[in-house]
Nucleic acid binder design. Sequence first.
DNA 1: TTTAGCACTCATACTACCTGAGTGCTAAAG
DNA 2: CTTTAGCACTCAGGTAGTATGAGTGCTAAA
Lengths: 350, 350
Amino acid sequence: MDLTERKKRILRAIIESYIQSAEPVGSKAIASSIGMEVSSATIRNEMADLESLGLLEKPHTSAGRIPSPKGYRFYVNELMEEHKLSLQETERINQALRLKMQELDRVLDQAGRVVSQLTNYPAFALSSGMSRVTIRRFDLLMVEHNAFIIVVMTDTNVVRNRLIRLPTDLTEAQLQMLNTLLNATFTGLPLDEITPELMRVAQHAAGEAYGLISLVVSFAMEVLESLEQRTVHTSGIAHLLELPEYRSLERAQPLLSYLSEDADPGRFPVPKDAAMKILIGPENVADALKDTSVVVASYDIGEGMRGVIGVVGPTRMDYAKITARLSYLAEGLSRLFGHGELPGGSDDHK
Amino acid sequence: MDLTERKKRILRAIIESYIQSAEPVGSKAIASSIGMEVSSATIRNEMADLESLGLLEKPHTSAGRIPSPKGYRFYVNELMEEHKLSLQETERINQALRLKMQELDRVLDQAGRVVSQLTNYPAFALSSGMSRVTIRRFDLLMVEHNAFIIVVMTDTNVVRNRLIRLPTDLTEAQLQMLNTLLNATFTGLPLDEITPELMRVAQHAAGEAYGLISLVVSFAMEVLESLEQRTVHTSGIAHLLELPEYRSLERAQPLLSYLSEDADPGRFPVPKDAAMKILIGPENVADALKDTSVVVASYDIGEGMRGVIGVVGPTRMDYAKITARLSYLAEGLSRLFGHGELPGGSDDHK
DNA sequence: TTTAGCACTCATACTACCTGAGTGCTAAAG
DNA sequence: CTTTAGCACTCAGGTAGTATGAGTGCTAAA
């Protein structure tokens, strides 16, 4: 798509004005914007051209123009200038990283919350799923004669635990034996290779304590399952209502519902390749997002995992500012995790 | 407050009709409701009486009456009949308990989600904080020569863990020594008794490995902190928009914002004494809830902790149905935890 | 190629008006 | 003393007509 320099300037002026005001912008407004030395009629002609190129749209005959998704795409790809974060902004993000991540108990969730506060848009956060996780090791810790703790660690260095109480007593030796057996039999296996036969063999080998095998293994399977299935966290969805485009409930409700019904992930786009991705309007797969834009960034969690944070908003969102903030934050998160400092690949929580 | 039998019947009819329709109910409607053998004029007189008692209100002169908060309170206390759960309803709840709690990684959160689905109202869930939790035991598990897992267990039987990587290597013996030292020094202490002096003494005793002490202990402190500080989870807030009273954004927005800004707990009422509590309109402390009703139930999590789940809705919510469902679910949760079955006092999660 | 002028479009706001549900009061009937 | 019928009155909500003004496309002149 080749445009004259003037057309580009006009398009950009329109888009940036619309991003600010959410109102269709007319030829007069552009003509009087500084640096435009032509009359409104000329602008009108140019705008007509831009419209026939599919970059602009008219809500109705006698309104100004608004950018089309294609227009935003062109803007994002070619017109948009890098937004420089102000010192205050970077400071605010750094502070959020420091402050939040200390007391953080769920990294992802918290990251999403920070993004939402930072951008004033609803945000979502998820971990990019890793398939074929396996258990690397089991540890059984005796607590009392009738209670012990299972600790499992995966090959991605995630550690999970559970306290188990028993109706019967148990000796330290039995627990040791069980521990060895588990490590010998069930480590290194992905979820779908933990078969009932395998279980039966192990239970046979366990002798008296055969019942415990299934307890521990099913916990391990739960862990594997929960890791393969990503969960999404959304936050700040109430921000939507502050935007003029969502002042009417008909518009707001479907999107709100879509964002707040957790559970099934995969509803949100995940950048496979790039670190950052912008999806404008109909570029989104999900129907509920067809009228919105999504900006996603991914960051390195370490241990082969990636975290994904994203922002959902109207197509007229301030891409320059949002991408700047998001990428700065994502970098910060990468660094934070990269250091292997605080949360590492571990977990803590509740 | 003493009312004639007829006044009670009328009040009840009005409230139940309003709960259904959300529209002011007039004298005619009541008169023609079966079992009322008097004319609308008589009803009007009675309604005027009920209004002067503060049990009813008029939105404006020529509309019907709506119940006042006081009216609802009277209804809840004296008029409401026990709602019997249908077989389908109990089955649905049981199923939710079974299904959801299996794959559950955050009990509270999930409980809230179930409630919201069950009632079609926004729900919140939190654990009633327990003060003065202490660490019962530490376990350090060697993973590699430069990495180990901390597992701590509190006296309330919550288990948490974290993976620690080190820049230097570590011998099994050192880890053992550290483990013993930790258990000797830091168990049985509430958060505020873990003083810097204590740390210094322990670090001195640890010799070479003194740096690890602070790592492990600060993790333990994090755990204690996170347990004393309750967190809230809200879910299903989009359900609000389905209700006629929140079809206008002015009404909906403040409440939505209130519900979705997580972080500070204590925003939600917690039943101190009873198992179930109903707060109607102005009975709520929080300003944002002055126009809403809240129904909360608490359930036994075991190990001295209680969970709290609650529902937020308009004052005209169907108290009979909601309380029935909530208390059945709370019982189910109590039983589920009581058995020490699945999640027990433990944790797993992400 | 640019500009001024002009007729035309159409969403939005405003006004006036009507309708109907519901009320309170009064006076008669039980 | 209670209940009922009748009637005037109130008032939110809907409908219709009208004005306003921002913005457009087209034409013709610069």
